[in-house]
């Protein structure tokens, strides 16, 4: 049995479905549901069984021979962006929209190979300020522009 992409995905989803099934056991059933044919657990149980069955079918079925992909995958670049996006989520409140967005875009452009300092500074700054103006002035959606410590709210 060769380990092809279908089986790899099947294994990952099997773990997910098993975990889902185990967690479904924790769903409380209220006293009013006791004699009922359909409780809060019914659908999750059925889905867990279906998911486990389909994952096993995918793993046990004769898999297709994977065509060797010649396209390289730039894992490090991708990982850097995942960290960057997560960091953006963590900083948008304490740093404020403008600073967090400018930093996110500048680092993003730089990671993808932009090296012109003028582009790295002006494009993110213009986009962040324009977007903030559009939100707060035109659409009436307030988003704190600066760091939380500048805020006068208690």
């Amino acid at each position: 049995m060769t380990f092809n992409p279908d089986r790899a995905g099947g294994c990952i989803l099997l773990v997910f479905c098993c975990a889902y099934g185990v967690l479904a056991l924790d769903i409380p059933t209220t006293t009013t549901q006791m004699g009922s044919a359909f409780t809060a657990r019914t659908m999750p149980f059925a889905l867990a069984v279906a998911g486990i069955g389909l994952s096993l079918l995918l793993i046990l079925m004769p898999g297709r021979t994977p065509a060797k992909s010649r396209m390289p995958v730039y894992w490090l670049q991708g990982a850097a962006f995942i960290v960057l996006m997560s960091a953006y989520g963590l900083t948008i409140r304490p740093f404020g929209f403008l600073l967090a967005t400018i930093t996110f875009l500048t680092i993003g452009f730089w990671l993808l190979g932009e090296r012109k300092v003028i582009t790295l500074i002006t494009v993110p700054a213009i986009i962040a300020m324009l977007f903030w103006f559009l939100l707060s002035e035109l659409l009436g959606v307030y988003i704190a522009p600066g760091p939380a410590i500048w805020s006068t709210h208690v």
């Binding site: 962006f81 967005t101 993808l112 939100l135």
Partner: peptide, 19 residues
């Protein structure tokens, strides 16, 4: 250039959900 476009798509996606 994609190097400018891709971070912008990410930004619009994230901020769209956050808003």
């Amino acid at each position: 250039p994609g190097r400018l476009l891709l971070p912008l798509i990410m930004f619009f996606s994230i901020i769209g959900v956050y808003l």
